[in-house]
Design a protein around this nucleic acid. Structure first.
Lengths: 254, 254
DNA sequence: ATAATTCAACATAAATTATGTGATTTTGTT
DNA sequence: AACAAAATCACATAATTTATGTTGAATTAT
């Protein structure tokens, strides 16, 4: 196991266990304590954990848990499957919009498979991955940078969107309740809504565990989306409600 | 001499001589022909030269201004000094605009010294450096990504600028002739002009060697700038012309 | 006070990257 | 078509960078 794999594993473990001892890690990976020290130092530097005497923790509640870098590591498999399902909807030559969020970042990274494409996004991770790639036209939306969401938001973003049109918008959401999608942040909602308005068709991406929990701000009615992609079957009530409304949900398989 | 230095030297030589033989390069640097082949392949890949049987040439015409990755290495010392002089004009709390280009990237990297600041830019290098830093508000302008300039340009960029105001805009230029600044690319000119229009005061940054050579597109009259910063005294004629017009040029010292 | 832990400095190992060599293929010229 | 120069390929080696380990001094918790 190489350095990056080890660090990934440390994070995986930490997300489960909330805390871990330094000796335990050195033991488990068969490396010296010094190496673990260095791993933890770098991970702390990246804002992924909090180093403490004798080990490290993930700080619950605070900015740590909600940080996008951690989210990108969570449920990596589900995200990969959903990205594959989303890619099926894309044809070379299209113009697609990608919103903020780690799910969108995973999808964005795989867009070159469908080149040539025009990609419009306010997601900093997607911009970094795509810039300079051949046969990809990248249009960044601009806006005020948000470290929390690793993206660009605000009037600049929305004004830019009001002047653009795309074939397909991929919108991700952390909360679906009843027949509506929610989001905890107003600025993100505004950007997402502007994208839906600027796209011919919109696709909602949502982890199956996020069904049945609302958040502060209403994002959109599920009926506004032309497709809904998730990674596994949601709870019975959610499923029934959605089926009852005549909406189709795509469950991404292996 | 290391690989990058050698490649830089190849480019320097080529800019003078327009063409060079492969054997000659292998000889001059004391490396094998294969190594020169690889250098030329990579430089061609980066769009910096045209490889030909037995050697390489610089494409005649406009495109020869070097790639931004190499440009960042050129005249690093002059850039650092000019950045220092530019920083002197910034007060904490200001809103500043930074345009594209490697000179601007060097300045952008040092902006945290003057935090808190609001920074508005279409320069991808500056966005990368500044995002997520505390006490820095970063507003990216968006636009279509240009690999050649490592920045964002086009209507999206200009529309965003039409809605924003800054205290100070830093504009860099690769060419000054007479009492006017020039640039080889129209899209970059549009963005720079929009910045000048959106800023209370504008500062021109220009390497002293760039005086006396025009480029395809007119960027602005020197009189439009509130300050002009360079790294060393320009040629006598240029200096006389500028002094004659009553314009002040700041020469950045050590 | 002391035992555990962290940190810094250096040494070594592992991996990556750059370069060279010679065989093989391509290209231009006659 | 035949030839020589040049380009390319595949692999070996060298140089450089990065990762890890070890030791001992400094720090910290109890």
């Amino acid at each position: 196991m190489k350095r990056d794999g080890r660090r990934q594993a440390i994070m995986d473990f930490l997300i489960e266990a909330r805390a871990v001892g330094l000796d335990e890690l050195a033991d488990r990976f068969g490396v010296s304590k010094m190496t673990i020290h260095r791993d933890l130092d770098d991970l702390e530097q990246a804002g992924l954990l909090r180093k403490m005497r004798g080990g490290a923790t993930i700080e619950t509640g605070t900015r740590f848990e909600s940080d996008f870098r951690i989210r990108e590591l969570q449920d990596a498999d589900a995200k990969a499957r959903m990205a594959t399902a989303a890619l099926d909807l894309i044809e070379p030559g299209m113009t697609v919009m990608i919103n903020d969020g780690s799910m969108a970042a995973v999808l964005g990274a795989r867009l070159p498979e469908k080149a040539p494409l025009t990609v419009i996004t306010n997601n900093a991770a997607v911009i970094d991955r795509l810039k300079g790639l051949p046969r990809m036209t990248l249009i960044a939306l601009g806006g005020e940078y948000s470290a929390k969401f690793n993206g660009f938001f605000g009037v600049v973003t929305e004004t830019a969107l009001s002047r653009l049109r795309a074939d397909l918008a991929f919108i991700s959401t952390p909360a679906v309740a009843g027949l509506q999608a929610f989001h905890m942040d107003d600025a993100a909602v505004q950007a997402k809504r502007a994208m839906i308005g600027a796209a011919g068709r919109s696709v909602l991406l949502v982890n199956h565990r996020r069904f049945g929990r609302p958040a502060l701000h209403l994002l959109a009615d599920l009926a506004e989306f032309d497709a809904i992609i998730t990674d596994a079957s949601p709870s019975v009530e959610s499923r029934d409600a959605i089926a009852g409304a005549g909406l189709q949900v795509t469950i991404a398989k292996d």
